[in-house]
């Protein structure tokens, strides 16, 4: 039993790291821009297919795709910001949500048209590799995905804490008008943070694709998970998201030891409802920013 729990803990931590990068974009965009990106998970789905496409076309390892996905999805996110979000920035928040919902439907449906509704997996040399250390066995793909996610999360943390631009972003999250008065280009910073959020979603999608089967229409599950992580951890800070991601990864893995697979999912949804009741009022931003 102890080794079973130890095994679950190791799996859960790796899963939590993957979940962190998957949810980071939702947390940052919501925390800094006050925009709840209901289209977040379609970019995760696109990230998974990005890795699959590069693997089948160019035989690129998903680890390489993970790195490549960051600039590609950053540009995509910046473009979405310029074309859609910036136009409705001054409008009431509801219009932005409508636009993002429309975007979600368009991208999801385009995904179905391009790749059908079939479920895919990414299989590489180390996908089924099992590395043993004492009583614990680790799956190769999960180890690689978890390690890359940790690196990406650390990079995001470093950017926001240690660079001037990152600190400007934090300042803007605190008070957008004051930041603007102090000479920060809030429009450019907003585009930057939206781009980074989508880049994290894309990279998270690559990591998700390495560890789970995926299909265009199933992305909402990751929206639910990302939302859950944001509620557990809190908004807008990398370390909060990491905490949330690790908690959810561990809870899911430990529940998986005790419950059949399909019920684990329902348990997570139940957890979401309970947490909204218990922790909802404490959600940083729910009251302060009046989203």
């Amino acid at each position: 039993m102890l080794s079973l729990l130890l095994q679950a803990a190791v799996d859960g931590i790796l899963l939590g790291l993957i979940y962190t990068i998957m949810a980071l974009g939702l947390s940052l965009i919501l925390g800094v821009l006050g925009v709840i990106n209901v289209a977040h998970s379609v970019f995760i789905m696109l990230g998974s297919f990005f890795a699959l496409g590069l693997l089948t076309l160019l035989h690129l390892d998903p680890a390489v795709s993970f790195v490549l996905s960051v600039p590609v999805f950053f540009l995509a996110g910046a473009a979405v910001y310029r074309l859609l979000i910036q136009r409705v920035q001054r409008a009431p928040a509801t219009i932005g949500i409508l636009v993002l919902f429309g975007l979600m439907v368009v991208v999801e449906t385009a995904g179905i048209l391009l790749w059908t509704t079939d479920t895919r997996v990414i299989t590489v040399g180390y996908s089924n590799l099992r590395l043993s250390a004492g009583p614990v066995t680790v799956n190769g793909a999960r180890l690689v995905a978890g390690g890359l996610s940790l690196l990406a999360t650390a990079a995001a943390y470093w950017f926001l804490k240690r660079t001037l631009t990152g600190r400007a972003v934090v300042a803007m999250a605190d008070n957008r008008d004051a930041a603007s008065v102090l000479g920060m280009d809030v429009d450019r910073l907003s585009m930057l943070i939206f781009g980074l959020g989508i880049a994290a979603a894309g990279a998270g999608g690559v990591a998700i694709g390495m560890t789970f089967p995926f299909a265009p229409q199933d992305h909402i599950q990751w929206l639910a998970w990302a939302f859950l992580i944001v509620i557990v951890g809190g908004l807008g800070r990398v370390e909060s998201t990491l905490l949330g991601g690790l908690v959810i990864g561990l809870v899911q893995t430990l529940a998986g030891v005790l419950l059949p697979f399909s019920w684990v999912f329902l348990l997570m949804y139940l957890l979401l409802l309970v947490l909204l009741i218990v922790r909802g009022q404490g959600l940083a931003g729910a009251r302060r920013r009046e989203l």
Partner: peptide, 14 residues
């Protein structure tokens, strides 16, 4: 719905 705004929208999708 005890929360403000957009949380409800994302919850309805989920």
């Amino acid at each position: 719905l005890r929360l403000r705004g957009a949380y409800f929208a994302i919850a309805t999708l989920i």
